[in-house]
Nucleic acid binder design. Structure first.
Lengths: 235, 235
DNA sequence: CGCGCGCTTTGACTCGCGTCAAATCGATGC
DNA sequence: GCATCGATTTGACGCGAGTCAAAGCGCGCG
């Protein structure tokens, strides 16, 4: 690793945040930084499970597909999140970059040893895994029971929430927010279990109703948060 | 607890299997046996998270629903499985019994302490949680991309696999298998994100094609496993 | 036995979303 | 400026699964 952990932008939120300086140095020696270009894939479903990582910047997708090629994005990963599946010999889902990305990669076997040696880290990983499980289970409800309109509205809301958390666009607690979607229409469709056309139509409908503005192809402005929430089915 | 852990039917497969006799005695003092009748609910989504448990017998469902009442079963639990969500103040999903059931219940706070004191148990829980996460992510693909026919065929296959594992109906590796579904049509619909009518129609279609026989209302005989697998989209 | 209740099956109809196809937009390079 | 290519939008159309409604079936109970 060229840069040191002390400088790491995501140090506080990442798993490594649970380590003291000495432990961190040990982990540091195991890992290395890796850059991925948009579209690049770092793990293929079914392949040998060789690495774990912490995402430093960018957005990754976790995806599965049916035998005949229908794809579904089963998870999105944002900076500071842990990527990988300790204690498994093969990997169940493909991991690819939706934007250029930077990770801190560790060999899986060595990472498991570190996990075994540091209770705090293992505990933290357990908590995060439970949180991921809850989130995924919630998405089961959305994917199978929500309409296309509810799915798209809910997706925009969740992306807005993320954007609020990281960027400076916190103009007001409930006023208009503007941000960029890190996903193309096709990728949004793969997240929501829809088609490109349906996602596009729902977004234009929201625009037509004055709920959203769509400046440029990836930009979104939420003009009426309450209406958007209502359309997402959040009462 | 009236019965002792040494007699426990699921001792070997359950989380407690990772404990030695002394540790087991300590855990034993914390917990108690609890019986649930079919239809009974032990935890409501949104309520305070007070208990964890090991399922001894029966089948439980984990479910979520939208504001306007559409329901989705996000997980099924079978004997020996761990129920609950350590490290969370509220519970995200309701837990109810699909059949009469028996559990070994522990107060959540005390259970977390035991977890903290026994590395083996924490490790095992982490592994199980990762497995549950993978399974749930796989279901995302099924629920959002599979047709009704594929969903029902896949569900019958997965239930058959379970039945094979526990009962004596292992006539042959690939021949006809007969077993009882532990779920009603309505519950199957809630698992698969379909309606009762669609599930019923797909099952009758499979029966008409000679792939299944449906002896009685819960019984299923797989007459042509290969055809069933093909219809489930497993090539 | 016969009644009622819950679950399941079957049918007719509707509609949301996928499919196919064409037009438009936007960025990039020559 | 203009050509090109990918992403997006828009339109027309069809199908799969939901909805609504009515039997049919099994089972316990008076």
């Amino acid at each position: 690793m060229t840069a040191v952990c002390a400088d790491c932008a995501v140090r506080r939120q990442a798993l490594c945040g649970s380590l003291d300086d000495g432990e961190l140095a040990a982990l540091h020696r195991l890992g290395w930084r890796h850059r991925m270009a948009r579209g690049e894939t770092m793990a293929w479903a079914g392949a040998e499970n060789v690495a774990c990582a912490t995402l430093l910047s960018g957005v990754l997708k976790l995806s599965a597909s049916t035998a005949d090629g229908r794809e579904q994005i089963v998870g999105l990963h944002f900076p500071s999140e842990f990527i990988g599946r300790p204690y498994g010999d093969t990997v169940e889902f493909s991991v690819s970059a939706l934007t250029d990305a930077e990770l801190c990669v560790f060999p899986r076997d060595r990472f498991q040893e570190v996990l075994g040696a540091h209770r705090g880290m293992e505990r933290m990983l357990l908590q995060r895994t439970f949180a991921a499980l809850d989130a995924t289970r919630s998405r089961l409800l959305v994917l199978s029971r929500n309409t296309a309109a509810e799915k798209v509205a809910g997706f925009v809301l969740s992306m807005a929430e993320r954007a609020r958390g990281i960027s400076d666009c916190r103009a007001s607690a409930d006023g208009p927010v503007t941000f960029d979607l890190p996903l193309t229409r096709g990728e949004i469709a793969d997240v929501l279990g829809l088609t490109i056309e349906t996602v596009s139509r729902q977004l234009t409908k929201l625009k037509g109703a004055g709920v959203l503005a769509l400046p440029g192809v990836r930009g979104v402005t939420i003009r009426d948060p309450a209406a958007l929430r209502a359309r997402a089915g959040l009462l």
